[in-house]
Structure formats: C-alpha cells, structure tokens
Design a protein around this nucleic acid. Structure first.
Lengths: 195, 195
DNA sequence: ACCTGAACACCGTTCAAGT
DNA sequence: ACCTGAACACCGTTCAAGT
C-alpha cells in the first residue's frame, strides 16, 4: 500500500475538456479519458464520483478560463470585454459551452463571474436589486448568443453578419442599462469610486 | 412479403418525445422507444436512419407544437404571445427544448416560425433587413431565456422573480424595436394594413 | 492508497433470416 | 415490405484482487 497516484482529478478534468474539444460531447467517454491518461477506465472512479460529477467539473473548469476585465475600465468597456470573452470561450470549447445554460448557476466559478458582472452593473448606476436582475438577463442573453454561435445555429451566415448582430445586441443592452440607471432612486453610484 | 407496417415514423417520433419528457434525454434510447411501441429496437431502423435522424425529427416535432399568434393582433401582443408560447413549450419539453439552440435553424418548421416573427417585426415598422437581424436576436434571446428556465439554471429563484425577469426582458425588446423602427428609412410600414 | 481484471447491464447498429 | 435473432463494438459502473 501507499502507492503514489498516477493521475489526479485536475488531470482528469483537463484531459476531458481536451477530448470534448477534439471529438465532441459524444466522444467524451470514461474510456477515452482513461486512454489519454494511460490508465484503465476503472482508475478514474477513485478520483471522480461518476460521469455526471466529471461533467460538472469540466463545466467549472470552462468558467475558470473566462478572463474577467480589469476593474479599472469603465463599465461599458468591461461589459463589452466580457461579451467578447464569452464568445471566444464558446468558440474554443463549442461542445462543453452549451452546458452552461443547462445547469444551476450556483457553483464557485459561476459566482465569481456573476459577482463581477453585478459589480460592473452597479458601477453603471443600477441599484443592488436592479443590478442582480440585469445580471441574470445580460448573462442569459450573452450565453444564449454565444451558445447559438458555437452550436452552429447561425451556420450559413457570414462571420461579419454574426459580428454585426452581436454589436447590435451589445448596443441594445448598453442602451437599456442607461435607461434603467437613469430611473434609479437616489444614490446614483454605490461603487467604491464614490466621494 | 407485403407485410402491413406495425409502426410508423410519426409514431416513433411521438413516442420519443414522450419518453424524453418522462425520463430525460439520457432516457431516450432506441430500446426505450421500441419497447413503448411493442417492437424490437432493430425495427426502428426501417423508418429512421439512425439516432441523430430521430433526434432531428423530435426537435422538428417540438417546433410543430409552438402555436403562432393570430396575424390580426397588434405586433406587440404577437411578440408577447410568442414569448409566452416559447416558455410554455420549454416547460412542457425541458429535455428536448435546449437542442433548439444547438442546431442550424434551417428546417421547415423553424422557417415557419422565423417567417412569422419576421412578418411581425416588419409590421412593427422595421425594414426587411432590419427585421431579419432583429428576428435572429429576438429568437436567440427568447430561446436562451426559455432554455435556461427549463434547464434549471434559475433554480432557487421564485417563479414570480423569473416572471418579472422575463417581463423586464420583453420590455427592453419592445423598447429597442421601437427605437429601430423610428430610425428606419422612408416606408414606415410595408404590411398589408397599409392604406 | 491506488490501479487492474473480470464481469454486468446497457447502448447503437449490422445483417442475414423469417413471414 | 416489415420485423426479428444473433452478433458486434462500445458504454458506465461494481467489486474483488493485486501491488
């Protein structure tokens, strides 16, 4: 006994994401992961409960790759950066990305992203409650667009047209946020940039 | 030879949708469908190419269930009706609905829905090109929300809060459409309600 | 403690054979 | 023409056994 581990949970998750990228979600099997790690499929179960657990971890790892814009930037640029980052993430991992829309946004990584978006929206002038509602809607809209794009729903449309669509969407979002901010009660900014 | 068929493609598709509703996407197997129809799994292959073909047909059948609002209603009500219909459809078929976001919108049924939405948006005062762009965005946004809701991404939030979120989203959409319509060149309405 | 061999129930799919 | 039996390669997962 006391045998040194050949594989680890992070290695399993990384291998899984790579396989999903290369062969799609259907290609992501316990056997494929094991083979890539030079181990039998049964060895995985020491590090992972089951395949559902593995998938959850892969989605979580996906979110880790989403870079959050620097807090110094003005809120409009931060929001735009987030949108572009989400689209690039979806293009890098088209097989896994759609899963983001299909599970509760309660994990540590999804909270990390959410907190960043909420903070950005509060800086845009929304109150705490409005910011949380706007976060749910903005995230849903961006996720839906990026998932559609990655999933091939827009296949047949030129890249330029899709980019223009997204620019239009961003503009609508920014405009709507300004409207909501303008109608917000009293304290126009609760951010740390107050004086 | 000349044996009367015991099953049909429509029956296979209907059984598949019912199974997906009851047991989820993972429960939708060729064996489960065959068993429900009182036949061996191999019999399905006379009526269906393979499982991918079956899934495509199920998604298409899903769209058939989406009622289009009557053309007499004002465009705002038609759009609202479409949104509610999409959410109800997603709740009725939560396992299949998310697939709508993951395949090209080129099928007959998806064209039927798209044409209806485009016509509605033209009636709202958009030009042909703007109407098609708006259709892509509106559909993506509604689909993304309904898929999130059905997939449990909003689990933990009260039904009222989700409804309020959606009402807010509808309001933003309507507002944005009015803005676009106002900035549209010349012909303010190409609908058959012209005079 | 960690990995493997053997085993099980279940997939999708084919092909020749029955009626 | 339509369905079935037998068969194959592949899944996820368990459990006892090896080191």
């Amino acid at each position: 006994m006391g045998r040194p581990p050949q594989i680890s949970r992070p290695a399993i998750v990384a291998a899984s994401l790579a396989i999903a990228d290369e062969r799609g979600l259907a290609g992501l099997t316990m056997q494929a992961v094991a083979e890539r790690l030079g181990v039998t499929p049964m060895a995985l179960y020491r590090h992972v409960d089951d395949k559902a657990d593995l998938l959850d971890s892969v989605v979580e790892a996906l979110l880790t790759e989403l870079p959050l814009p620097r807090a110094e930037l003005p809120w409009e640029q931060r929001l735009r950066g987030l949108g572009q980052a989400a689209r690039m993430l979806a293009r890098r991992h088209p097989a896994i990305f759609p899963l983001l829309l299909q599970r509760p946004a309660n994990t540590p990584e999804s909270r990390r992203v959410r907190d960043s978006v909420v903070a950005t929206l509060e800086e845009a002038g929304l109150g705490p409650q409005a910011a949380r509602r706007a976060e749910r809607l903005v995230s849903t809209v961006i996720l839906g667009f990026a998932a559609s794009e990655a999933g091939g729903r827009f296949r047949g449309h030129s890249r330029k047209l899709i980019d223009d669509d997204f620019a239009c969407l961003e503009q609508v979002i920014a405009h709507a946020l300004q409207d909501v901010a303008a109608s917000q009660p009293v304290s126009r900014s609760a951010s740390r940039n107050d004086r």
